[in-house]
């Protein structure tokens, strides 16, 4: 039994872990393989090398837009978090309203609204730039909540202790609040970066040729629909898996409580 069930409070042995991971892979593969066999589909990936330029360009666009959005949305998120707790009521309601509305509506609605109405009205013509901006506005609301959450999770006694040792406000911010917030925010931000990469696929709606749009075009010109989208999924995984791994590592590194 020890090979398959974890005992209380003990880590599974490397052998048990490996065995079970292989089992999971085998079962999942079997289900798909069987399904394919039943409907009699054979995959043919031989067309891919011919389209490597499209793929590379889409890959570059996805990574570029995501990185740019990460930076911008971090900035927006920080501003919204600070503004949301401002004593200036206009600012406070603006920031809280922004977070509530953005989090409560689908990205696709925001893309259409911002691109076709606001973007057109203000003459932002680059699809890439608008795409990155829209994505940043969207992700900024989530990052705002991450930042707000990590601020709220700071222990009251830590702040009192900061006052007790004689730190003034800015010293408290620099030596206590910021280091503790960064420890809590960075792992979550890494996770959010993975979301940004996936969410960027929706920018294909305004004809930004990022990865998923590239593969949509490949699939329509080759008729290899499944192969194209499976490859697309695999590329996204290659991007997001290392990030979630890094996020877990960061979490462990910064985990200094208890």
């Amino acid at each position: 039994m020890a090979l398959f069930v974890q005992k209380d409070g003990r880590k599974p042995s490397p052998f048990a872990a490996a065995l079970n991971i292989v089992l999971v892979c085998a079962v999942v593969t079997a289900v798909f393989w069987l399904s394919l066999a039943i409907i009699d589909i054979r995959f043919d990936f031989s067309f891919l090398p011919d389209y490597r330029k499209w793929v590379l360009r889409g890959f570059g666009t996805t990574v570029g837009v995501s990185v740019m959005s990460l930076v911008l949305s971090l900035l927006i998120g920080v501003l919204a978090a600070v503004g949301g707790s401002s004593r200036v009521l206009f600012l406070r309601y603006l920031c809280r309203g922004y977070v509530t509305v953005i989090r409560g509506t689908p990205l696709i609605t925001q893309i259409y609204l911002f691109y076709y109405i606001i973007g057109t009205a203000w003459g932002i013509e680059s699809r890439l730039l608008s795409g990155a901006l829209i994505l940043s506005v969207f992700e900024g609301a989530y990052i705002c909540e991450i930042i707000r959450g990590s601020y709220l999770s700071i222990d009251e006694t830590q702040l009192e202790a900061a006052r007790a040792v004689g730190f003034n406000r800015s010293q408290t911010a620099k030596y206590v609040i910021l280091p503790q917030m960064i420890a809590r925010t960075v792992p979550a931000l890494a996770g959010q970066f993975a979301s940004i990469i996936k969410d960027s696929s929706l920018l294909s709606m305004i004809a930004v040729v990022e990865l998923s749009q590239a593969f949509r075009e490949i699939s329509t010109s080759t008729f290899h629909l499944f192969e194209a989208y499976f490859t697309l999924g695999a590329i996204y995984l290659c991007l997001t898996l290392p990030i979630s791994f890094a996020s877990k590592r960061l979490e462990r590194r910064f985990y200094y409580e208890n």
């Binding site: 222990d155 006694t157 830590q158 009192e160 202790a161 900061a162 007790a164 040792v165 030596y175 206590v176 280091p179 503790q180 420890a183 200094y256 409580e257």
Partner: peptide, 11 residues
């Protein structure tokens, strides 16, 4: 000042 607990900076 010494607190009942949790007064040391965690980080």
């Amino acid at each position: 000042f010494v607190f009942q607990q949790g007064g040391l900076f965690h980080h």
